[in-house]
Amino acid sequence: MERIVLGDAEVIRVVEWEGAFTPARTIVPGLPAEEWERNADWLAPDHWDPVADTYLGALQTWVIRHGGRTVLVDTAVGEGRQRPHSPAFHDRRSDFLERLAAAGVRPEDVDVVVNTHLHGDHVGWNTRALDGEWVPSFPNAVYYLPAADHAAIDPDGPESGPAPAGADARIWREERRLMFADSIAPVIRSGQAVLWSDGHRLDEALTLEPAPGHTPGSSVLRLDSRGDRAVFVGDLLHSPVQLVHPGCNSCFCEDPAGAAASRLRVLRRAADERELVIPAHFAGAGAVEVRRQGAGFAVSRWAS
């Protein structure tokens, strides 16, 4: 179990799944194909399989212990979800709660759940099935959900924005409807959800900030404890190759221009203030310190 100490905070990585995900050229479609080869010496073997030309990633949750509270950042895919158009996520079986327990976290111990954005692989363990109903997995937690994302996927709310380029709009809407029903609506009904916008301070060490683009409500969570800093960036980065080319988006970004602008802004601050960058999907070490290099960024060190 990977543990990182930052000031008075302990950060623990709990992996639901890690491995080959999709062809490399699919995950960052705007990246020239030769860039994977050009950066092979540090992308392989953790983030890219050069033989199969496959992007390697992870589905995971980051646990923060600070000030006597336990915070979960994103909750991966979950179990028993009906995702007929996403075979990798459809009706999965998972030992995630057992893995969480191995990190010393029982569901009733969790005080806060942060969803950096409302995509299915970030909200799945928000809930679990009990007697045929979806109920909050963490009965004592406050769930922080970006209000802009909630508005975009609520079937009773305003019209959602366009699907990402190349996505089937009908499938996109159906997947979001299913996700809302099993992973979002139950925590709204329970009264445990806080819909936030324009930034939100959780405590003296943790602050939520908008970083729109990947979704309308995409956010980052900043940690600052006794001068040690980290930023949990959700899906601002899918692959570390985007450090070299921060203008290149993942195939899942809903507003490409907005996503690129948020990525560049967050990475500049991380490099200048030595914030540890903690994305949702990096395999390998999972977290990284960066420095400016040309128009992009380079790895200063991987977390350990």
Rank of each mutant, 00 (worst) to 15 (best):
P210F: 01
F180T: 02
H214T: 08
V113K: 01
T70G: 01
N39I: 07
L221V: 06
P210C: 05
R265M: 11
P50Y: 10
D272C: 07
L237S: 04
A167E: 15
D95E: 14
P210R: 00
Q293L: 15
P155L: 07
W172L: 08
G166M: 08
V288Q: 06
N39A: 12
T70K: 09
S300Y: 04
E10W: 00
D235H: 09
A102F: 08
A20C: 05
T61P: 02
A148S: 07
H200I: 08
A44M: 09
A76N: 06
T54Y: 09
R263N: 13
S183T: 13
W134V: 01
L97V: 12
G19D: 12
N126H: 12
T61F: 04
L72E: 02
I184L: 10
A169E: 15
A151D: 12
R269K: 14
S86Q: 10
G67D: 13
L130Q: 14
A280D: 13
R83L: 10
R268Y: 11
D228A: 15
D255C: 03
L130E: 15
D255G: 05
G67V: 04
C253M: 13
A52M: 14
A260D: 06
G161K: 02
P136D: 13
R93C: 07
F297D: 01
E209G: 06
A169G: 08
R301D: 02
C253W: 11
V231T: 15
A230Y: 09
V71H: 02
G227D: 07
E174R: 05
R106N: 11
R65K: 09
F138R: 00
S239I: 03
S239Y: 02
Y144T: 01
W62H: 07
D131G: 14
A205I: 10
S304N: 13
E98F: 03
P32Q: 05
D49E: 14
R65I: 06
I278Y: 00
A151C: 09
I12G: 00
E275G: 03
D182N: 06
P210A: 09
Q82M: 08
L223D: 01
A193P: 00
L243N: 01
A151L: 14
D198C: 10
Y143F: 15
E204I: 00
L59G: 03
R201Q: 15
A33C: 08
D203F: 03
G161I: 13
V110E: 11
V112W: 01
P212R: 10
V71D: 06
H66T: 10
T116N: 12
V73A: 02
F282V: 00
V51E: 15
E35D: 12
V266M: 11
N126D: 08
E108M: 07
E289P: 04
I171D: 13
V28T: 13
R81W: 09
P256L: 12
H90W: 05
A24G: 05
G213I: 05
T207N: 06
G68K: 04
P23E: 04
Y144W: 14
F180W: 13
G227Y: 08
A151N: 06
A259C: 15
T116L: 15
G104R: 07
V114F: 05
H281N: 05
G57Q: 04
A261N: 04
